[in-house]
Computed example of a mutant assay.
Amino acid sequence: MIISKFYYLRKNLYSMAELVLEQVILLSEALEADDYEQALNIVERDDLIDDLEKENDNLSQNAILEAVSNRNILGMGDVDNGIVLKKDPLRFALSAIRITRNMERMGDQVVNCADVFRHQTIRKGLFKNEEPMTLILSRVTTLAGMAIESLVEEKERFMGSVNSLEDELNELCDQAFKKYRSVPDMEKQEFADVYRIILALERLGDYAVNVAEELVRLNTGKDIRHLENVKSKPTLYP
């Protein structure tokens, strides 16, 4: 019974992760190709993510109840609370709730971008030919890809530095805002929509980092959130 519940929870979590990443990739392609039909398709597909979020919530709650009542049977009764192990189903179920929330919010930010873009107020070629927008799309896709791949493949360590990549994304978003704020032929509506997309992409990256940080906590027991003021902030990657 326990194996069945956690099997379905893990399966649904991975399905949601892959769907979110697919949405991110579709968004990048739609923006670069000025594909408004694809943008509309992205908006309409959001219900698939919402449905999986509801399923994961219910499965996580049931899994938590089962894990609590069967923890000793699974040999986890004597585990130190300060140690986090992937073998502990209770900890996995609790992390699954947080990961699900962050992935749903990643999906929301994708939809926010697509919904703004499909109204065709933004000049063509902006996301294909102009920096820093091209770099922003690249960094967001990379961040999302690393987080989702790490979840699905259950990696404890990753290639690269999520923290450095997030810092670079934030700097690029700031550069984009300053750049388009000063473009003389950009009308207020176009600037407003560009700015909304910049904000949504930045938040998308933040939620991807949240997923990666939760995986670190699940696999190592270390909570590395909100360490930006620490002099030697540990990275998620070696």
Rank of each mutant, 00 (worst) to 15 (best):
A144I: 00
R181P: 05
G160P: 05
L172W: 00
A208V: 08
D108Y: 02
L165W: 00
V116Y: 08
Y195L: 12
L215I: 02
A192G: 13
G107Q: 01
N170K: 04
D223S: 10
T141H: 06
M146G: 01
A114Y: 06
E156A: 02
A212V: 05
V194D: 02
L201Q: 03
D115I: 09
R203N: 09
S161E: 01
E228N: 15
E168C: 10
S138M: 10
S182W: 02
S138A: 13
D108A: 01
N229Y: 11
R118G: 03
V111W: 00
Q109F: 05
F117Y: 13
V183A: 13
N129Y: 11
M133E: 06
D185Q: 14
A144T: 02
E202Y: 07
L172I: 03
V116D: 13
N163D: 15
L151P: 04
I148Y: 00
F127H: 04
V183C: 12
E154N: 09
H226V: 09
V110K: 06
K231P: 04
K124V: 14
D193L: 03
V152N: 05
L169Q: 00
Y237L: 15
N219F: 09
K155D: 09
Y195A: 14
L172F: 02
D223Q: 09
R139V: 07
T134G: 02
A212E: 05
E213F: 02
N210W: 05
F191T: 14
F127L: 12
E149V: 05
E171Q: 12
E131K: 07
I224L: 15
R181D: 12
L199S: 14
L135N: 12
E187Y: 09
K231I: 09
R196N: 15
G125F: 08
V209C: 06
G160D: 02
T121H: 09
P234E: 08
K233M: 15
G107Y: 00
I148G: 04
T121S: 12
L126P: 00
S182Q: 12
E190W: 06
L201N: 00
T142Y: 11
F158I: 14
D223E: 10
F117S: 05
E228H: 14
I224M: 13
I148D: 03
L151S: 10
P234N: 09
S164A: 10
N229S: 15
L199E: 14
D206E: 03
N170Y: 07
L218S: 07
A212H: 03
D115H: 08
M186W: 05
N112L: 09
V209Y: 01
H119K: 07
K178R: 09
A144C: 10
V230M: 11
F158S: 10
D167W: 07
L126R: 03
E153N: 12
L126K: 04
F117A: 07
N219R: 04
H226R: 11
Y207T: 03
R139Q: 04
A192Q: 11
A212L: 04
R118E: 09
V216H: 01
L215N: 01
A192C: 14
K124H: 12
L135Q: 13
L151T: 10
D174I: 09
